[in-house]
Structures are given as structure tokens and as C-alpha cells.
Simulated assay, not measured.
Amino acid sequence: MIGGGRLQGRRGLRRGDLTVAAIAQLAGVSPPTVSKVLHGRTGVGESTRKRVEELLREHGYRRPVPAGSARGLEVVFSNMLGFIAMEIMRGVEQVAATRQLGVGFTDVRSRVTAGLPWVEPLLQRQPVGVIAVVSEVTTEHRELFEARGVPLVALDPTGDVHPTPSVGSTSWSGALAATRHLLELGHRRIGLITGPAGFLATRARLDGFRAALDTAGVPFDERLLRSGPFLFEHGRDLGSQLLTLPDPPTAVVCGNDLQAFGVYEAARLLGLRIPDDLSVVGFDDIEHCEWVAPALTTVRQPFFEIGATAARIALALADGDRPSRPLVELGAALVVRDSTAPPRSA
């Protein structure tokens, strides 16, 4: 064991309790060298940096958060709708305020688009923890955060980020409830527009959709399935494809509300009325759902609670605790409004 005899008397410490001085002892370097690695500063050889980062990850080092610290939580977004981002931020801020911590906001979309790194500039601000609401979180990013002793929590990640803690909503049960609602109204030809095929939430919602059909004894028709980005124009184009089929659906479940608004437009262009000719269900419940006509039936995601839960996990990690569950899913609920009705043939 490397340095096995240097840390006598520390066996009772929890993972993450080792100090900078103890990490320096294990690495055979000075505490200022470890500090340079933690803060991303120059003046450290590459082999030494890697050795220190490996020890920091191995021992789960967490930077201490002194009382009255000016450091805070950082929330990282990329291409996020304003309403959703604000709700997440409100949840994070409510929890951070209990520790008298500030909350920073970072949008990395331009850096990601330009192929530039976004983790290092963030780490230079020495956050207490980072909540990532971006799809571009990778294993390499997680290792960078771990090596600097900064807890990372992912919100609704698009891929498997285990063992990084993550928080999201129950996409499977949300899609199940949306589809079951349409089935109970009498619909049998139900279209589905999902998000990008590789996203975890997309797969979960497709599974929930199919489970509702299976339970009702309704065959799944793959001709009524489309997938694409969570954007208005894709909802419009994919919706048009479904609505111009020889035997079109009488209802459509969408991957998010923007896609649903796109289906509204596709229906308008084809002279169809909602919900008389077509029922539509969205996913998210952004504020615009009550403003459109007819008001959109959708699945509400608890974005405020998601942000608050992620903040509590990040602060617990900063305190050296480990979450009891690596994945937390909060309940999504169907909100029935005016965009759904029985089909004409029912």
C-alpha cells in the first residue's frame, strides 16, 4: 500500500475527510502543490498532477466549506428553456440559502458548440458543488470534478453517468399516465413523438407509452412513432408526417411541450382542429401551456423540487456524506386541460 504507514490514527475518518496535508503526504509532495492541483494552477508536472488527482479521487476529497464562505453552488445549463431554468434555480437557491451560500448560473452552450472546455473555467471559481443540467456530462468531466474535490450532481442526464448522483422525474410513469388518459377517452390510434433516440428519458417514455397500450390490449404500431430534438419545428414536421398518413392517429403524445406546440401548428396547416379532430399531450408543463388555445394537456415535471433535491445532494456530498440512492426520481403528474377529448368515432 502506498504510504500505508503515514496516516496512522486516521482510520476513523470518513471518506472525504482527508486534509490537503494528508493528501500531500500520500503523494510525496508539499501541501502547496496539492493546492495548485485543486485550483487548476500551473507549475505542477504532469505526472505529479495525475498522481495527486488520482489520490484525491481515491479518497473522495472534499474541500471544506467554512462558515460565511463566499463560495456557492454553480448550476450549469445548455440550451435550457427560461421557465424550466428559473424553476430549477429557484429550488437550488432555496436550499443554498439555508447555508448562506450563493448560487451561480453558467450557460455553456456557446463553449460546447465551439468545442471549448467548460469544466476548467467553472472549477477556477472554486464552487462548493456543481449541478449540471447539460447533456454533455461525461465520465471525463466527472473525474475532473472528483479530482478537484467538487461534488457533481447531474439533472435528468441523457446517458448513464453512474456513479455520479442524478435527479430527474418519473418519465416512465408520466408517459404511462398520458397514454392511459387518451385510451380512457377512447383513442386507439395514438401517435408518439419522442426525443432523440439515445436519451434515457426518451427510452423511459417510450416504454411507459407501450406499457399503457399493452395493458389496454392495443397493439403498438411503429408507423405512428417518430423521434427528434425537443424543438417546435421538429414537432411541426414530425407531426405533419403522422397527420398525413393514410390512416393518421386521432391523438399524439409528445416528448415535450415545444414538440406539442409544433403539432398544434401542423394540425392548423392541415385544417384540423384540436381537440375536435386531434388530441395532443405534451410533457414538462411550461408556463405557455396555459396560454395557448386550447390549453395543453401535459405531464408536469416538478422542476423546483428537482433543483432543491439536487442542491441538498450536492451539499451533503460537500459535507462528506454519500447519497443513499445514486438516482432520485421525483413524481411527474398528468395535468388535464383542453387539448384532449374523445375521438369523433368514439
Rank of each mutant, 00 (worst) to 15 (best):
I2A: 11
G9S: 04
R11H: 13
R15S: 14
V20C: 03
A21F: 05
A22F: 03
A22E: 15
I23F: 04
I23D: 08
A24S: 05
G28T: 08
S35M: 06
V37K: 07
G40P: 09
G45V: 05
E53Y: 10
L55K: 10
R63Y: 06
P64V: 06
P66D: 12
G68Y: 08
A70R: 12
E74G: 05
F83C: 10
A85Q: 10
I88D: 08
I88W: 07
R90S: 14
Q94S: 08
R99M: 04
Q100N: 10
L101P: 01
G102K: 00
G104H: 15
F105Q: 10
T106W: 10
R109P: 00
A114H: 03
E120C: 06
L122P: 12
L123Y: 09
Q124H: 11
P127D: 02
G129H: 01
S135K: 13
V137K: 07
T138C: 09
T139F: 12
R142W: 01
R142I: 07
L144C: 07
L144T: 00
A147F: 14
G149L: 01
V153W: 06
D156Y: 06
D156A: 15
P157W: 12
D160G: 07
V161A: 11
H162P: 03
G168Y: 06
S169I: 03
T170M: 05
S171F: 04
A175M: 12
H181W: 11
H181E: 12
H181D: 11
L185W: 01
G191Y: 03
L192Y: 09
T194R: 06
G195Y: 00
G198S: 01
F199A: 12
L200G: 00
A201F: 09
T202R: 02
L206H: 00
D214M: 02
T215L: 08
V218Y: 03
V218T: 10
E222R: 09
R226I: 15
S227V: 05
F230I: 02
E233S: 03
E233V: 01
R236G: 01
D237M: 13
L238P: 03
L238S: 03
L238R: 13
G239M: 14
G239H: 14
L242C: 03
T244W: 05
T244N: 14
L245G: 12
P249Q: 08
A251M: 08
V253Y: 02
N256L: 07
G262N: 08
G262F: 11
Y264E: 06
R268H: 15
R268E: 15
V280N: 02
V281I: 15
G282F: 11
I286E: 15
H288V: 14
E290I: 12
W291Y: 14
W291P: 03
P294T: 13
A295H: 06
A295N: 09
L296H: 00
T297M: 13
T298V: 00
F303C: 11
A308E: 08
A308M: 07
A310L: 02
D319M: 02
D319I: 04
D321K: 01
R322N: 05
P323Q: 06
S324Q: 09
P326Y: 05
E329W: 01
L330M: 04
R337E: 09
R337D: 12
T340D: 00
T340K: 00
R344W: 02
S345Y: 14
A346L: 02
